[in-house]
Deep mutational scan, measured.
Amino acid sequence: TDVTFHVNGRNLHLKGADEELLRRIEELIRRGADIEELEKAVKEWEK
């Protein structure tokens, strides 16, 4: 799945995201995470 999140005026584009990653990103956004936290979560998922 390709999806782009718009967070605090910045874009986080995910290519090939699975349901697990999407749920994790949505949860972080609900908690008020900043873009750096979201990018870190994506990097951890990519490993």
Rank of each mutant, 00 (worst) to 15 (best):
I29T: 02
K43N: 10
E39M: 10
E46H: 12
H6K: 08
K47E: 10
T1Y: 15
E36N: 08
E19G: 11
E46D: 12
R31W: 12
T4Y: 06
D2N: 06
D18V: 06
E20Y: 15
L14V: 13
L28F: 08
E46P: 12
H6V: 14
I35A: 02
E46T: 14
N11W: 15
E20L: 14
E39V: 12
R30K: 08
H6T: 12
N11K: 14
A33T: 06
K43Q: 12
W45Q: 04
L22F: 05
R30C: 09
N8L: 04
V7E: 03
N11V: 15
D34E: 11
A41C: 09
I29L: 07
V42L: 06
F5G: 05
K40G: 10
G16H: 08
E46A: 14
R31Y: 10
E46G: 13
I29D: 00
A41W: 09
L22Y: 05
D2I: 08
H13N: 05
G16Y: 06
D18N: 12
G32V: 02
A33L: 09
H6F: 09
D2C: 15
K43D: 10
K47S: 09
E39W: 13
K40P: 01
R10N: 09
T1H: 13
E20T: 14
D18W: 01
G16C: 07
I35P: 01
A17C: 13
L14A: 01
D2Q: 04
F5I: 15
T1E: 08
E27P: 02
D18I: 02
D2R: 03
L12F: 15
H13R: 09
N11F: 15
V7K: 02
T1G: 09
D2L: 07
V7G: 01
A33F: 13
L38T: 01
F5W: 02
E36K: 05
E36Y: 09
I25L: 10
L22T: 05
L14R: 00
R23I: 07
L28N: 01
L28A: 06
E26S: 13
T4G: 04
L38S: 00
H6P: 12
K43C: 08
I25T: 01
A17G: 04
E27K: 12
R10D: 06
E20F: 15
E44F: 12
A33H: 09
G32C: 03
A17K: 03
D34C: 06
R30V: 08
N8Y: 04
I25P: 00
V3Q: 04
L12E: 00
V7Y: 10
K43T: 09
T4V: 13
R10C: 10
V7M: 03
V42A: 06
A17P: 09
I35S: 01
G9V: 02
R31P: 00
R30N: 07
L14E: 00
L21G: 01
H6I: 14
E19N: 12
N11E: 15
A17T: 04
E39Y: 13
L14W: 01
I25D: 00
E39T: 07
K40C: 09
F5C: 13
A41L: 10
K47Q: 11
V42E: 01
K43I: 11
R24A: 08
I25V: 09
W45S: 06
E19W: 14
D18G: 11
T1K: 14
V7L: 05
W45I: 03
G32T: 02
E39F: 12
L14P: 00
L28D: 02
G32N: 05
F5L: 14
A17Q: 02
R30Y: 10
E26Y: 15
L12M: 05
K43S: 12
E44P: 02
L38P: 00
V7R: 01
R24G: 05
H13W: 04
A17H: 04
N8M: 05
E37M: 12
A41R: 08
L21K: 02
T4C: 15
R24C: 06
L22P: 00
R23M: 08
R30T: 07
L21Q: 03
G32F: 04
K40N: 11
R10Y: 14
E20M: 14
